[in-house]
Amino acid sequence: MKKRDVLFGLLTAMLLAVLFSPFASPWPDGLEKVAEDKGFLEKGEATPPITSPIPDYTWPGVDNDGLATAVAGAFGTLAVFVFALGSAWMLKRE
């Protein structure tokens, strides 16, 4: 994979996360909907064992909802890219 291909792939992912994520469907996903319909959604509403820094893909402190999602998306996309690339490098070195 050439540098150009990596940049193209990463840029595509970043654009998806930044430009399209604010317009994603707000409806509950399959599991959430089933939980709602079958009456066990509240089981998942207890306080989680850890606190996440960016819950629900909303960057804290940004008033505009769409922007908060876009920033969280950009950060997350870069974070998993670095994490996956770093893990692969470490495995290679072993």
Binding site: M1, D5, V6, L78, F81, V82, L85, A88
Partner: peptide, 8 residues
């Protein structure tokens, strides 16, 4: 690099 791109 493909692993990084796919994850992203």
């Amino acid at each position: 690099p493909l692993m990084g791109v796919m994850a992203a």
